[in-house]
Amino acid sequence: MMNSQKVTFQNHNMNWPMAALVLYPDNFDENLMYPVVISVHPFGSCKEQTSSAIYGKALAQAGYVVIAFDASFQGESGGVPRYKEDPSQRVEDISHAIDYAVTLPYVDSNRIAGLGVCGGGAYIINAALTEKRLKAVVGITPVNLGRLFREGFSEYNPLGVLGAMAEQRTKEARGEVLQVNELLPSSPEVATELGLTEPDVFEATDYYKTPRGQTEGGATKMVFSNAQRILSWDAFAFTETLLTQPVMTVIGKNIGAFGAYRDGQEVYGNATASKDRQLVELEDISHYDLYDKDEPVSLAMARILPFLEKHV
């Protein structure tokens, strides 16, 4: 059985608690020192899903202490309004998780790595631009949320969406209820009925809206009016100069609308200052296969573990 403990630590900047799972290696001994991996969940996800249950578990079994946390405004972490997605805060959350990790007597503060899935993969790479306590980072099917919002999520009309957000925020400031958007159909069957069969959309529904991945904390919702800053954010800006740490991106070659294949390639192409940049392309594997499917995850971990062992 996986050894884990639910903990909270403080987001001192915002004065609210962060909820996390700490996963321990088998035969864990608190008198020894361990490397640690900060594991970052996808957009619309939570700590109980792929960041801990899949990759956290695999990393703990390989000898790492893993901290998988809920983002601010999401899951069991603090912050209001609920369901807010704030890229800058998401990146800052990673530093607070590291602040917590370095207080643990069994964590080697010189051996800290980061790993993230989907949006979390882009967030951990962005964090590494300025958070040099991270010694290596891995983005699994990483998605640059800013790029995605400017393109597909806004139907290539970002200015129109910003105008709508501005109008809605004014209404809410005057007392109207928050507009909270559900991001996915309620089931794969409903997705089919609505014609939403694009692979990433359909597979997201299959993951988040069925027992395969559905959990109480993984609310696929977003406050519409508070998302303006996503559209002006770029996960990979300044990568070519500030990303000095070793970086790996793992992407499936079955391409979907969320653009992880393109984003993973971009990180690899731009990370010219990195001490070791690696691109792992997996044949016949899609974005959501890498969330929890046995063979894709095994293929990914077969490359991730030697990479982390080399650098952390």
Rank of each mutant, 00 (worst) to 15 (best):
M2G: 07
S4A: 13
V7W: 05
F9D: 07
N13G: 14
V22C: 12
P25H: 01
D29F: 06
D29R: 06
Y34S: 09
P42A: 15
F43W: 14
G44A: 01
C46R: 01
Q49A: 10
S51C: 08
S51L: 02
I54E: 04
A58D: 15
Q61C: 02
A62V: 06
G63W: 03
G63P: 11
Y64S: 00
I67T: 04
D70P: 07
A71Y: 12
S72Y: 01
E76T: 07
S77Y: 03
Y83P: 05
S88M: 13
E92N: 13
S95V: 10
S95K: 14
I98V: 12
A101M: 04
N110R: 14
R111C: 06
R111K: 14
C118N: 08
I125W: 02
L134W: 09
G139C: 01
I140P: 05
V143N: 07
F149L: 14
R150I: 08
E151W: 09
F153E: 13
Y156P: 07
N157G: 12
Q168F: 03
L178R: 14
L178F: 06
N181C: 09
E182L: 09
E182Q: 12
E182P: 08
L184Q: 09
P188G: 09
E189C: 00
V190M: 11
V190Q: 14
T192N: 10
L194Y: 11
T197Y: 01
E198M: 09
V201A: 13
F202I: 12
D206E: 15
T210V: 06
G213P: 03
T215A: 01
E216I: 11
K221I: 03
M222L: 15
M222R: 15
Q228W: 12
I230D: 00
S232M: 11
V247L: 00
V250M: 08
I255T: 13
G259F: 10
D263C: 05
D263L: 07
D263S: 00
Q265E: 11
E266V: 05
Y268Q: 02
G269I: 06
N270W: 04
A273N: 14
S274N: 14
K275P: 01
K275M: 08
R277Q: 00
E283T: 10
D289M: 02
Y291R: 06
Y291G: 07
D294T: 15
S298Q: 15
L299P: 05
A300M: 07
A302E: 13
R303A: 02
F307E: 04
